[in-house]
Simulated assay, not measured.
Amino acid sequence: MVATTDMVEENEIELASTPTANLGTILIIEDDPRMQKVLRRIFLEEHYAVAVAGDGQTGLDLFRSVRPLAVVLDLILPRISGRELCQTFKSLSNETPIIVLSAISEVVDKVLLLELGADDYVTKPFSPRELTARIQAAIRRQRKPSGSNVFRFGECEIDFKSMTARRSGTPVVLTAHEFKLLKFFTDNVDRVLTRELLLNEVWGYNAYPTTRTVDNQILKLRQKLEPDPANPKHLLTIYGAGYKFVP
């Protein structure tokens, strides 16, 4: 559920209090109260907690105290500029993704921000779907482990590089799309994934099947990989929210 507050005041921190808001905190540094409200709603609906700052100094203070999962950063801010903040954040915590959100669209500014350490750049006006996808992609890149392409869980062994799968030592035939969906789950272990997010990330921005398409694909994965598909242990349904993968 989205918090009931109608407006986030400048420099206010607001953390979602719902049980599903367990994915970490997104820090929004934006001086426009209307834009604060829009961004807050977008990330609360994706089950993140949200902290909001209306100026650069407050943003820096919140960054140090909240330790956010990612930062959405405006460039033009009171007290400390977005450019300076970006560089400071990366010196304090290089692994924290920073997505710059600004009306400035010149290529030179984008290049400068990337050189200062920003992980991505989204130009206003923006699509909420694109912004959340960019944030989630940046978070995944930071979390992605290096090493083997083989992923093991339960009785299953999945080699994503060779696109082969086994359950209890017996080969299992998965389609290319089933490998893609399973890879997304294994990259997001224990995270609740909405059907809409799965459609965006696995099926792509230009394809708009119904959410039932997701349910049918997961049903097929369960039939191939779960010991008891009717009572899954790994590909779990989180009622009212989506799905979660548990190794």
Rank of each mutant, 00 (worst) to 15 (best):
V2S: 07
A3N: 05
T5M: 11
V8P: 00
V8W: 06
E10M: 14
E14S: 05
A16H: 00
A16G: 00
S17R: 01
T18P: 00
T20R: 02
A21G: 00
A21F: 00
L23E: 07
L23C: 03
T25R: 01
I28W: 01
I28N: 00
I29A: 04
E30V: 03
D31M: 11
P33I: 14
P33S: 14
R34Q: 13
Q36G: 08
L39T: 01
L39E: 01
R40K: 06
H47L: 03
H47M: 03
Y48I: 00
V50C: 00
V50I: 01
A51T: 02
G54D: 11
G54R: 10
D55W: 03
Q57T: 13
G59I: 01
L60A: 14
L62E: 04
L62G: 00
F63D: 03
R64H: 09
R67Y: 05
R67F: 07
L69R: 13
A70L: 11
V71D: 04
D74G: 10
I80Q: 07
R83K: 12
R83N: 09
F89M: 15
L92C: 12
E95Q: 15
T96G: 11
T96M: 14
L101H: 04
A103T: 09
S105F: 06
S105H: 08
V108I: 06
L112A: 12
L112Q: 11
L113I: 04
L113T: 01
L113E: 07
L114K: 15
L114N: 15
E115T: 14
E115A: 15
E115S: 15
L116C: 12
D120S: 15
S127Y: 08
P128H: 06
R129D: 08
R129V: 08
L131K: 06
T132P: 02
A133R: 15
R134P: 07
I135D: 01
Q136H: 15
Q136D: 15
I139M: 14
R140Q: 15
R141H: 15
P145Y: 03
P145H: 06
S148I: 05
V150F: 12
V150Y: 12
G154K: 07
G154W: 06
D159G: 10
K161H: 13
K161N: 13
S162E: 14
M163Q: 13
M163Y: 04
A165C: 14
R166T: 13
R167P: 02
G169N: 09
G169L: 09
P171A: 11
E178I: 02
K180P: 00
L181Y: 07
D187G: 13
N188F: 13
R191G: 02
L193H: 11
L198W: 05
L198A: 06
L199T: 04
N200R: 14
N200W: 11
N200P: 01
V202Y: 08
G204A: 08
N206V: 03
P209I: 03
T211N: 04
R212K: 06
R212L: 05
R212I: 02
R222F: 07
R222P: 02
R222S: 09
D228E: 10
P232M: 12
H234P: 01
H234I: 03
I238P: 01
A241H: 11
A241Y: 12
K244T: 12
K244L: 12
F245I: 09
P247E: 06
